[in-house]
Structures are given as structure tokens and as C-alpha cells.
């Protein structure tokens, strides 16, 4: 890695994201720390998913969307002409709100991403390690060739996490990964996050305040301004955000007095 002494993984500079003429996210300046969990919270429609998708250029697929400002990974602007979005997505993985496994076998769900990225090692091992990292191995080790659709929602979501890990990204983006899960599966995913942060930088969007408070190291609070454009109004240690926020709106939101 080039910037070994830099303990930031990814940084945004005056990042704004537009859908056509509408500015959904305005002027975001964030420094995300390496191997930490950063939560993004805020009311519905404030641009959390939009911001998250900008990190691995998923917004490229929304026709009419555009980005101004910069996002730096190892000092390289992800939106510069010389950066290939495929490389970005290979380095920055994503877990979506709804589990979306491929309609293939459990094994193939993990192996496919590695294979298309030219993985040269032992695929069987990779599959096992990824499933272990996602705390799914024991549940599925006897039915690797069965369809991923036969798994429960919580298992599917962990499979999606395993799939993201399998290509060994640096950063994992998660958009409300536990919103479709029951409390027990949710807890398992949270425990999993603590394991994963030893090796990965994690950015997670969540509506669940306890989850953000329990699981994350840093929290970014987003809110829309009078033109309905979202922005980060406060970014700090999670502890501080939940105990002594500086912004009144953050306090209202995290204590449930908002709206």
C-alpha cells in the first residue's frame, strides 16, 4: 500500500451527487478510518444510500446521475478519468439492503466473483474461509451445491457478506444489511461486523439507532437542507454522537424526538 502511515481509508472532498438537476447530496467531507466501522444515520430520503453507492460507483448505473467533488482511495480520485469503475468495485465491495444472492448454488455464489477476478488459489479453500468469516460455514457446509435461494433471509444476507469478502476488498459498504432480518439474525450480523473490522474498513447505513451505537466506531449524521439536498451535519466518535452531540438536530434524531 502506498500510504502506509495514513490511517484513513477513504476520504471525500466537497462531494456532491446529483440525479439530473436535483442535488441529492451536497458538499460532503468525510474521512473514513481504516479498519473501523463507520455508521451513516439520518432520516429517510436524506441521501444515505446515495452517498454509500457513490463510494463504489454504483450510481454510475442510474441514468442522469452525476458526481462533483472527489473521493480519494490511497490518494487516487475514484472519479478521475483514469480510474476504471470495475477496479473500484473490486476494491470496495457492497452488501445490499435486500439479500440478493445469485440464483446459483451456495458454492458458486462465492466462487464466481473470485473466478471472474482471476483468482489463482484454491477455490474450495476460498469458499470455506469466506463462509467461515461470514459465520455461515457450519450451517451450509453440507449443502454447498444447493441453491442459495433455499437459505433463510438471514443466511442469504450472510452469504452476500461472504460473497463480498471472497474477492478480498479493502472496504465493505453495507446499506441497511439487517433491515430485513429478525433480531437474532441482526445480532449475528453485528457480531460478524466486529470480526470483519479486523481486516476490513466498513461503512454501514442503518436506521437502527441501537445498532449504530452498539456496532460502530464512528457515526456520520445526515440531514437534508432547505433545498432537500442531504449533507453530513455531524461526524464524530459514535460515543460522542450518542451522548454529547453538538448539533441539536442530531440529539433530537438519536434520542427519537425527531419528526
Amino acid at each position: 500500500m502506498e500510504n502506509n502511515n495514513n490511517h484513513y481509508s477513504i476520504e471525500t472532498k466537497d462531494l456532491s451527487i446529483h440525479y439530473g438537476r436535483f442535488t441529492a447530496v451536497r458538499n460532503v467531507n468525510l474521512k473514513v478510518e481504516k479498519q473501523k466501522i463507520t455508521a451513516i444515520i439520518g432520516p429517510s430520503g436524506c441521501g444515505k444510500s446515495t452517498l454509500l453507492r457513490a463510494f463504489n460507483r454504483m450510481n454510475d448505473f442510474v441514468s442522469g446521475s452525476s458526481v462533483t467533488g472527489e473521493i480519494f482511495l490511497h490518494g487516487r480520485n475514484l472519479y478521475s478519468k483514469h480510474v476504471d469503475p470495475v477496479e473500484v468495485r473490486r476494491k470496495i465491495g457492497m452488501v445490499f439492503q435486500k439479500p440478493n444472492p445469485f440464483p446459483k448454488s451456495i458454492y458458486e455464489n462465492i466462487a464466481w466473483g473470485a473466478r471472474i477476478n482471476g483468482f489463482k488459489g484454491k477455490v474450495d479453500e476460498l469458499v470455506e474461509n469466506s463462509l467461515r468469516s461470514a459465520a455461515l460455514w457450519d450451517e451450509v457446509k453440507d449443502k454447498l451445491q444447493e441453491s442459495a435461494y433455499a437459505l433463510s433471509g438471514g443466511q442469504q444476507q450472510r452469504l452476500c457478506i461472504a460473497r463480498a469478502i471472497a474477492v478480498q476488498p479493502e472496504i465493505i459498504l453495507m446499506d441497511e444489511p439487517a433491515s430485513a432480518l429478525d433480531p437474532i439474525s441482526t445480532l449475528r450480523v453485528e457480531e460478524l461486523l466486529q470480526e470483519l473490522k479486523k481486516n476490513y474498513t466498513i461503512l454501514i447505513v442503518t436506521h437502527n439507532m441501537q445498532q449504530a451505537a452498539r456496532a460502530s466506531d464512528f457515526t456520520a449524521m445526515m440531514m437534508i437542507d432547505d433545498q432537500r439536498a442531504g449533507g453530513v451535519i455531524e461526524f464524530d466518535d459514535t460515543k460522542k454522537i450518542f451522548t454529547r452531540p453538538t448539533d441539536k438536530r442530531t440529539e433530537d434524531y438519536v434520542t427519537g424526538r425527531f419528526g
Partner: peptide, 9 residues
């Protein structure tokens, strides 16, 4: 999205 997400072209 799942496919692009793991770095597929």
C-alpha cells in the same frame, strides 16, 4: 448490482 458489486464487467 450483485454482479457489479463483486467487480464484474
Amino acid at each position: 448490482q450483485a454482479s457489479f458489486g463483486v467487480g464484474a464487467t
